[in-house]
Nucleic acid binder design. Sequence first.
RNA 1: GGGAGCAUAGCUCAGCUGGUUCAGAGCAUCUGCCUUACAAGCAGAGGGUCCGCGGUUCGAAACCGUGUGCUCCCACCA
Length: 887
Amino acid sequence: MALSIHYQPEKTEQQWYSHWKSSGYFRSVPDERVPYAIVIPPPNVTGVLHMGHTLNETVQDVLIRRARMNGFNACWVPGSDHASIATEARVVAMLKEKGLDKSSMTREQFLSHAYEWREKYGNIIYSQIERLGCSCDWDRVNFTMDDHYYQAVIRTFVKLYEKDLIYRGARMIHWDPSAKTALSDEEVEYREVHSVLYYVRYRLEDPPDPSQPWITIATTRPETILGDTAIAVHPQDHRYQDLEGRYAQVPLIGRRIPILFDPYVDREFGTGCLKITPAHDLNDYNLGLKHHLPVVDVLNPDGTMSEAAGRYVGEDRFQARRKIVDDLNSLGLLVRKEEIQNKLGYSQRTEAVVEPRISTQWFLRMQEMAGPALDAVMLGDIRIHPSDRFINAYKNWLVDIQDWCLSRQLWWGQQIPAWFDASGNFVVAEDEEAARQSYRKKFPGSDSPLTRDPDVLDTWFSSWIWPIEVFRGITEPANPDFAYYYPTQVLVTGHDIIFFWVARMIMAGFEFENQKPFSDVYFTGMVRDKQGRKMSKSLGNSPDLLDLISRFGADSVRFGILISSPAGNDLLFDEDSCNQGRLFCNKMWNALKLLRKWGDSPFEGGNEAIPKDLFAVLWFEARLREASLQVQTQFDGFRISEALKTLYRLIWDDFCSWYLEWIKPARDQSMDAYTLEAVFGHFESLLQLLHPFMPFLTEELYHQLRPRGMGDDLMVRQSLPGLTEPDRDLLEEGELAKSFITAVRDARKNNGIPAREEIRLGVMTSRREVYQRMSSVLIRQCGSISLEFTAKPVPDSIPFLCGKDNGFLIATTEKGLPDPGQQAEKLRKELQYLRGFLETVDQKLSNPLFLEKARPDLIARERQKKSDTEEKIRSLNESLKHIQPST
RNA sequence: GGGAGCAUAGCUCAGCUGGUUCAGAGCAUCUGCCUUACAAGCAGAGGGUCCGCGGUUCGAAACCGUGUGCUCCCACCA
């Protein structure tokens, strides 16, 4: 069957994927092999795969496929995250479109809509992961809202509560007015924005100087003026010394508030007077506590003004700000406005400006858990790659850790297992029955009905046990899977969730299992576009993965994202790199066509098939080993992108451009059986090395190369080329052959001798046997009819230099070659360079300090350099002598 | 305000233990080739103040200090 001109991924990818899947290759169960487990960072259940995922999943698949080929029991656990706040926001929006309002339905009704949504869209992400070729064990899919998982989350909550690590209390927290829920500190993103600083006059009561009846404060949030309960100045601020013990009036509402002295106030900022609104600012809250100030909350949970805001009630906070500024202005209380830069907190999920808000929530004490998590990384029990950048951040976060606000005022998630009686007493238990028992014990005699806390838990409180519970480590702690796979090997994720997820998983690992969750963490960079901008929906610069795959093929996309991905650095993604991947696929496809052609017309010359180009075969053998070792080293250091580059060069340059050309039979000849078998074997080794990166292409080529029996699939072939030291001499000789051929091509080009014009070659060398070994390769590749050894320069030839050896292009006809004057010029330049080089070497060698202090082997190397260079110069001079007469 | 990282060819980046892997790779550019696997290809070439300054050293792209310029993280200055 004739092979198509180009590789056609669309014809093979889906087919191979289903073959692998139905053959059970993705499935992993405990056995006697060493496990190699990776848990996927669970994408949001209703999300689609973006380029960041593409990078992460590809890296994971590369690691897991390579581990599988290396004989490990590789297990990649897929799954998804219920993503409480993000998903709930989307479901609410979807309902709104249908004319339904969350607030008018029961929890059960809402959840049934949410589950319906999940049923409808929750599997999209999995099919995209499949399209990418990921070898996940699909029998192990976990979802953070699965029954067992839900149960596990509840159980950990109860455990921590019983250890007194979870508490409930009123604190100032970050509030998302759009999602109407509390957030953790980590879910707030600060952005630099342009703001207006308003200078507002407050009337002083009984002013010490009646001509100065005002005190002016500066604020960026005039709408919170209505919640002011004091004004503060610095105790040493001479401007305000006479205000001690006096009172001022809040504009618009006339509330009487004290003027306090507190060193917290920055005298340099604004007017040096600070308005204090304990309900709406963390610092003010703390000052309020210190000075026993009342708290006036002027905002509703949805960000509108509350009853306390008087006539502004019901207005949106930003609307109210404008109105209040207008009102202050018309009352003559607005002194001036000033543009300033400041930072505002935004909700990571909804983009709403967060409000500091006093609220009763559930918190987890983190201090105690931070210790083991810190030690694990600092002592190297868990290794972070690349380490330098992230260890510090990790350390700082843990050292200065804050308690974790766990509760969210949402419905989509694990409902907090706390039950309250009518008077606010509560118990924490795994289920209602247990809660009742516990309640009776704790509050004997009281028989109030119990209602469950309506709030759910932070999504990250469920994902932090991911590496444990995907193996049922919490709900069925004694099960064999958990014992076998935990701890897992590698976690591959973006560095943006180091605190959200990675640090907390490490804590959970030690807290619940007394054991790290993984040994290595590999942080990928953020995927950016060509101009370095973050990929985002609003910029429209995030390519559609399925579209990319349909245009380039999954392997090319994998290639494209990996080749531009230096470890840990942000990567600038450009479609062109996928195209480069596509060209690479074609290159290999064409190599296959060549091999097939050779295989189709085998050598007819009898049994004594003497390999003509044994040198080439042995050289490539060595080169393959060398590259395999490099690749292994690169994998060991998680330099995945480098490993792919190594293979790319090995395949394109060494295999295709050199090796295949070297062994290519002459036009009317066939390939001998030995070489044929060798090159087929080499190709298979290359396919295997490349398979983790480009699984579809390599599997297809593996089967196209020759017929295979049942179950002989590349994906499960477990014999990666052995890691034995290559023959260094052979490698060096291969390089010599390459540079000789290049030198001849260069000389041809410089002297206008077409590639097909026959020549003879002469070489003046001390390594005759080496040249003899590769002579057939050199002769053919140089378009020569012979290679002659000569003791002195050949007259009327074009000389060139190859290493220390002199080479000569010799004419085969009477007509001769063009005037070598051109070439002489080139050689003179070379000579000049060599003389300069020799000078630097001589300088070193004549420096007594160098001879005294440098390592002996380095001195020997310099001496070698010197004699080599001198020899080259001698050779060149001699060649030039023979050219000169004719110029 | 605190901390971290980066600066090497037009672009994106390697360069690990200071010295023959030392100034590299890919892409881009230029030149010549429709050579019987591949023109989506082949062959060849050009291209650099290794950010500036100072120091350590026999020797620095690499180590130290410093300046400059980007990037990121953390932090409650209205």
